[in-house]
Amino acid sequence: MSLLNWKKSIRLRLLGSLLFSLIASFFGTALINENLGFSIVNMLWGILLPDIILPKLVGATFSLLSFLFFFLLIFFFLMRHIVRQMRTLADGLMALAKGDLDYRVPLSGQDELGEVAQNINYMAEQLQSMMRRERQIETSKMELITHVSHDLRTPLTSIIGYLNLLKNDDYQDLDEHKRYINNAFNKTQQMKKLIDDLFEYTRLTSGDATLSFHKIDLGSLLEQIITEFEPIAQELSITVKRDWEQTPFPAHVDVEKLVRAIDNLLMNALKFSLKPGDITVRLAERGDCIVLAVENRGKPITEDQEKLLFERFYKAEPSRRDRDMPSGAGLGLSIARYIVELHGGKIGLKHANGHFTFFIELPKAAQITKYNGSDDKL
Score class of each variant (00 low, 15 high):
P106C: 05
D51G: 03
I238G: 01
S63C: 11
G328K: 05
K350T: 06
D217G: 02
F359M: 09
Y103K: 09
E200G: 12
F313R: 04
D91V: 13
E245N: 15
D100V: 03
E125F: 08
S2N: 14
Q136A: 10
L93S: 05
K215L: 12
L12P: 05
M43H: 14
L198A: 07
S327F: 13
R337D: 06
D324L: 03
G28R: 04
L211D: 08
I10M: 05
L274Q: 11
I145F: 13
E306L: 02
R104H: 04
H147D: 12
Q118F: 09
L236P: 09
M43N: 13
G344W: 07
D278V: 07
D322Y: 06
F62W: 11
K307H: 08
S17I: 00
R297Y: 12
K307P: 05
V116C: 00
S108P: 07
R286D: 03
K56W: 08
K299E: 09
D51I: 06
S149T: 09
M94S: 12
L218E: 02
D151H: 03
K187Y: 11
A124F: 10
T239A: 11
D100Y: 08
A329Y: 05
Y122Q: 15
L14I: 06
G37W: 00
F356G: 00
M43F: 13
R135I: 04
D196S: 15
F359K: 01
S2I: 14
N268Q: 06
K271C: 04
D111L: 01
N119Y: 07
G328S: 11
F71K: 00
E125Q: 10
L166N: 13
L36R: 13
L342M: 15
A30D: 01
G207K: 07
E200Y: 14
T369C: 04
T202H: 11
D254P: 03
N186Q: 08
I225G: 02
P231H: 03
T157M: 13
L144Q: 07
L331A: 02
T29D: 00
N164P: 05
F272T: 01
W244S: 09
R312M: 03
S9G: 00
E303H: 11
F356D: 09
L48F: 05
N268C: 01
V58Q: 02
G46T: 06
K350Y: 14
M131I: 14
D102E: 12
R297A: 15
Q224H: 00
L113A: 08
K141V: 15
L65M: 10
